[in-house]
Computed example of a mutant assay.
Amino acid sequence: MRPLFLYAPNLKRYETDFLNSEKGWKSISVTGPSCAFNCKHCGRRILEFMIDGSNLGKLEKEIIDAINRGDEGIILSGGSTIRGDVPIWKYSNLLNKYSDRLTIIAHTGVIKNEEIAKKFKDSGVKIALLDMVADNETIREVLGQPFSVEDYLNSFKYLKKVGIKIAPHVIIGLSKKGIDGDLEAIKLLKEVNPDALIIVGLMPLVGTQMANIKPPSPEDMIRALKLARDLFDNIPINLGCAKPRGKSYINVEKFAVDYDIDGIAFPEEEIYNYAKSRREVHLSNACCGNIIFDLIKVISS
């Protein structure tokens, strides 16, 4: 079986006997809590949990601290501009000072043309993260964005064209078409040849318009992981950091272990021993998107 990577970046407090997030890669918002959109499932709440890196001084302070701690990378994120992209590229001069000492993984937002993609490349971004949505209704009514499915697909194509690795995320439970819409998002990604694929689950957040929505069932999460593994047998597939938790979801992580899923972020504690008895396990404080490089290191060593 493939090696299994268990991840714990510094996105939330996570502590087990085998791994904790205290020294995990930092997640920094270059816009602070600001975003041009107000997605119903997020409501800008996710930005509140990130480190504020909304000016040069704040961002450089966090980067230097990460280097001094011995971190190998950082996660850059933030709210979108009205054009759709996260304006990480505004700090390209600063980021280039440190890009040879840190792996920069970035949530890019929607990329409308190759020129914007090139700005991310020039900022030292190595891996790009962006959700994939398979229907215009969800983009319009849930995300509140004036974009299309084609805009999302083109974003990945532009990023790949300029030489950035792509790790699309599919949020199970997001589509207004139900699980069929979520699974369609996975299928559509065949068109863009991703370097990794990350499956996550909708987590109802207090204070958002979708706070009372029912999260995806364990069965739907398993269906998504199975489809992703079956369709993309030559790239890493991860169960990402955002996902429903609880006793009934233990079987999702056990399925991930048994079905050759490559990575699990913030695994339930009992999964470690379960996995060790079946696969070669590696522990990491990186963003799980770094599976692209982690897998290469392990295979080549």
Rank of each mutant, 00 (worst) to 15 (best):
M1T: 14
P3C: 06
L11D: 09
F18I: 12
G24A: 07
G24M: 04
S27C: 15
T31W: 01
I46P: 00
I46A: 04
L47A: 02
L47I: 05
F49V: 05
F49P: 00
I51Q: 03
I51F: 10
S54N: 13
S54M: 10
N55V: 07
E62Y: 03
I63E: 00
I67K: 03
G70A: 02
D71E: 09
E72D: 15
I74H: 06
G79A: 00
I82F: 10
R83D: 14
R83H: 13
G84V: 03
W89N: 15
W89E: 15
N93I: 10
L95I: 13
N96A: 09
K97Q: 13
K97I: 03
Y98F: 15
Y98M: 14
T103C: 14
I105T: 11
I105S: 08
A106F: 07
T108P: 11
T108C: 10
G109Y: 00
V110Y: 06
I111T: 06
I111Y: 04
F120E: 09
K121Y: 15
G124I: 05
V125N: 11
I127Y: 08
L130Y: 09
D131C: 07
V133W: 01
A134L: 10
T138W: 11
I139W: 08
L143N: 07
G144A: 04
Q145I: 01
S148Q: 02
V149T: 13
E150D: 14
L159D: 10
K160A: 13
K160Y: 12
K160C: 13
K160V: 10
V162S: 12
G163T: 10
A167H: 01
V170W: 02
I172P: 02
I172S: 05
I172Q: 01
S175M: 01
I179T: 05
D180S: 15
E184A: 13
L189N: 06
V192G: 07
A196F: 03
L197S: 00
L202H: 06
L202D: 02
L205E: 13
G207I: 05
T208I: 07
Q209S: 12
N212S: 11
I213G: 04
P216K: 01
E219L: 13
D220S: 08
R229A: 01
D230K: 08
D230V: 01
D230I: 06
F232V: 00
F232G: 04
F232M: 04
N234I: 02
N238T: 15
A242Y: 09
A242V: 15
K243H: 06
K243P: 02
P244W: 02
V252Q: 08
E253T: 09
K254V: 08
V257H: 00
V257M: 06
D260W: 06
G263R: 09
I264K: 11
P267D: 06
P267V: 09
E268T: 10
E268V: 05
E269T: 14
E269N: 11
E270T: 12
N273S: 15
N273L: 14
A275K: 07
S277K: 15
E280P: 10
E280Q: 13
V281Y: 03
H282T: 00
H282Q: 02
H282V: 09
L283P: 06
S284H: 02
N285S: 11
N285F: 06
C288Q: 11
F293Y: 13
I296K: 15
I299F: 12
S300K: 15
S300Q: 14
